[in-house]
Design a protein around this nucleic acid. Sequence first.
DNA 1: GTTTATCTGTGTATGCAATACACTGAGTAT
DNA 2: ATACTCAGTGTATTGCATACACAGATAAAC
Lengths: 263, 263
Amino acid sequence: MGDDITEGGLPRAVAAAWGLLETPQRGPARGLDHQRIAEAGVEIADRDGLAAVTMASVARELGFTTMSLYRYVSSKDELLRLMQNEAVRFPDRPDLPATWPEGIKAWAEVVRRAYQARPWLMDLPRDQAAVLMPNTIHAAELGLATMAGLDLEENEKIGIILLISQHAMSLVELERSLAVEGGLSMTPEGLEQLRTVITAERFPQFAALISASGFAEDPGGSADPAAKDAVDSADVEMEYTLGLDLITAGVDVLVARRAAARG
Amino acid sequence: MGDDITEGGLPRAVAAAWGLLETPQRGPARGLDHQRIAEAGVEIADRDGLAAVTMASVARELGFTTMSLYRYVSSKDELLRLMQNEAVRFPDRPDLPATWPEGIKAWAEVVRRAYQARPWLMDLPRDQAAVLMPNTIHAAELGLATMAGLDLEENEKIGIILLISQHAMSLVELERSLAVEGGLSMTPEGLEQLRTVITAERFPQFAALISASGFAEDPGGSADPAAKDAVDSADVEMEYTLGLDLITAGVDVLVARRAAARG
DNA sequence: GTTTATCTGTGTATGCAATACACTGAGTAT
DNA sequence: ATACTCAGTGTATTGCATACACAGATAAAC
């Protein structure tokens, strides 16, 4: 029936995205294709959020009935996978610096912007097939290209790509938490309540953090909410840059160690 | 009504987990509490998977009716948040080495094992409130403690914690992809199909990877499936260690640079 | 001690979303 | 021509979250 895996062993969404699914020959011409369906889904998610993406809404967007979509995708899950691939499309030739580490940092920035532009990407079910999708491969390819000059194993480079993209995503996630009301940016009362339970005795390390940052500044203090938000935002930026710097510095150390070992 | 946010401005799950929700005084005694509900949910997720966690199944597990849960949690989402907190419980005193970088690596290992033990944690909706939950704070506290000797800003340490835990999670995720049929471990036919589209011309960097690793070794080659799986597994282990090493090396560089600057 | 407001647990009902199934008519291969 | 097959549709089912209103219990107010 609506099996999720091709006879070839590939997840259906992967095969579809690569154009590996043979199209039927006998019947009437098809009115849709995977591409248009994925685009419609992305459009709805961009406009109204991921929750608004239903089989019915996507079909309506395309002027077809709900069930017609099942001629193309075997489940909503497959639709979401196709949307993911569609949504992470990189510029074909993004003009990244060819030098290390500028190249990889620029690459990271593109990844980061992709998540910023479509936060719903982070709400998609974690997909074991995502790494095989065309645009994921393409993005990785571009990242690898910025490391062409580095004397590392290929799978080490892959590891670095993975680490960096993961980092970019998690910082966008954090950024978003700060922006949402009820997330980390809460009312003074909320902070006050937390301070009663996150005490210096129970969390000694955190005590330092609390006094160092504006995490729970004196209640009724002089800082207005706008200023607090600005601080938070700068913090995220700092964390992002820090992580990137740590990773690239680590890579430099690794490369140098290898070179020294080789003599 | 079923608002997700307390009057105090805290997400309800956060307030509940910290015991900040005042319990009603008037009526009959309550038969349940947040703790037991969260535990029941975790038990079901462990046993039958996250999809099996429904308001009905959790209630049944506790011997109550579905609707009774709504006296304690305002939505399923809140239940999931409580489950997350319950599931990431660290040992109270995990006996981590007090030295750098052994301490943080041991900490990372604990985080990693937590995800390995409960893969469904990675399928939970990304939660902006997770960072405020008691057990998250506790885990971070322990991580920070391993860095007590490092001369870094507190929020820099937080950034490192974030980076490392994220890394651990993503590698468990990758590990899981390899294990699942239809994920990355596919049939020879699947690999063969992919090789027809991931060509050296379109993806020059990947070409090197393909020849270097067993990603798409000669079809009908000598390697049996078991051997291939072993390679994949070792690869993940390598990626995990690599990422950790990169980060710690980067931190060392940062610390050294600071020390030098201070003279 | 009675009264009253409040709270618990429950049963019922609603609405939404995914999706199985069977049908109609269109088009292609033989 | 004819038979096979496939596209798009309508209908029906199912699972699940959750709104709502009720009955009995209980602590606070008088």
